[in-house]
């Protein structure tokens, strides 16, 4: 075990897997000589060369589309979209192509592709460097989406994503890069895709979240512990496919659930989590399902007061948790 920053954990996992499997390669904007604008791929071009660390022309659909072709041929591309906000030109390639290659060929072809994309706000990124895009893809059968919250999961989910025989979107939160560090197991450590993690065990209320919000919710739960409220906290880790079993078990344990995400509320991942609970565990509930999410505005503004207004934090989450506990 070594304590690592979230960003270093992603870097190291990528490097380890590239050493282990020469079919793994990286393609994206600025991933080579610059080592990525966030430096996730720093040093990889020196170790693996230009053939496996490809500085692509600035064209997202080609980055993903070329990676799809390489994946179909049997390689394991890890494409980087510089900011999740810029994945939209590649949506046709992701939804019409990557997600459907296995299905439309009746299992003849496949697309073992990983697309990494930094997402999320609170970093003065304004409208187009702050968004959470998972809900757009969450609706699409054929895509898996992982969103690690810890350095350990960043490694374990990246290795699982690269080894997965189907396309996986790997959303990494920018605010976690150099803020979060934790113990990362050495060697071939994988975290199964589709399995949530119980962060805290508790009896009074259940909080279900993922990504950056796991940390804010943890802080809120610690605060509420002092007030005598104990929280069952679930980190989904994978938002597609959702771990229904873990969601339902956690809800049944306390009978009260709050779903938290940074992404705006309408049609978000929380809506599906909520529907799963309503369908399967309605009579286990002691309070209405509650959601705390970003507001339904196009994206978060650049100016600090409005950015803070958009972003959830531990105080806002604690407040929602108190209300739920008191119901």
């Amino acid at each position: 075990m070594t304590v690592k920053l979230y960003i270093d954990s992603i870097h190291d996992a990528l490097q380890e897997e590239m050493r282990r499997d020469d079919g793994v390669f990286v393609v994206g904007e600025d991933v080579g000589v610059r080592g990525g604008v966030f430096r996730v791929t720093q040093g990889l071009i020196e170790e693996f060369g230009e053939a496996r660390v490809i500085d692509a022309p600035l064209a997202e659909s080609a980055i993903v589309g070329v990676a799809i072709g390489a994946a179909a041929y049997g390689l394991k591309p890890v494409a980087e979209i510089q900011f999740a906000d810029f994945i939209l030109p590649a949506v046709n390639q992701l939804i019409s192509e990557a997600a459907k290659m296995r299905y439309r060929s009746n299992n003849d072809w496949s697309c073992p592709l990983v697309v990494r994309a930094p997402y999320g706000g609170g970093v003065h990124g304004a409208l187009y460097h702050s968004q959470s895009l998972e809900a757009l893809f969450h609706h699409v059968p054929g895509l898996k989406i992982v969103m690690p919250a810890t350095a350990a999961d960043a490694k374990g989910l990246l290795l699982s994503a690269i080894r997965d025989p189907d396309p996986v979107l790997y959303f990494e939160h920018k605010a976690l890069y150099r803020w979060i560090k934790d113990e990362v197991p050495e060697g071939e450590y994988t975290v199964p895709i589709g399995k949530a993690r119980c962060v805290l065990e508790g009896d009074d209320i259940t909080v279900i979240t993922y990504g950056l919000m796991v940390h804010h919710a943890t802080e809120a739960a610690r605060e509420l512990e002092k007030e005598g409220i104990s929280t069952e906290l679930i980190d989904l880790r994978t938002v597609a496919p959702l771990d229904s079993e873990a969601i339902l078990a956690a809800v049944r344990k306390t009978g009260k659930v709050l779903i938290v995400h940074e992404d705006n509320k309408t049609g978000g991942v929380g809506a599906e989590v909520s529907a799963i609970i309503a369908e399967k565990a309605l009579f286990d509930l002691d309070a209405p399902i509650s959601r705390l999410c970003g507001p339904d505005i196009p994206a978060m503004p650049f100016n600090p007061p409005q950015e803070r207004f958009y972003m959830l934090n531990s105080e806002k989450i604690a407040q929602a948790m108190r209300q739920l506990a008191a119901f």
């Binding site: 390669f25 053939a51 496996r52 490809i54 659909s61 080609a62 993903v64 589309g65 070329v66 990676a67 799809i68 072709g69 390489a70 994946a71 179909a72 041929y73 049997g74 390689l75 591309p77 046709n92 390639q93 019409s96 192509e97």
Partner: peptide, 16 residues
Amino acid sequence: TQIPHAVGIALAARMK
């Protein structure tokens, strides 16, 4: 959409 895939096939083949 198939056109970038062709480029990816060519890229992968060269790598191999």
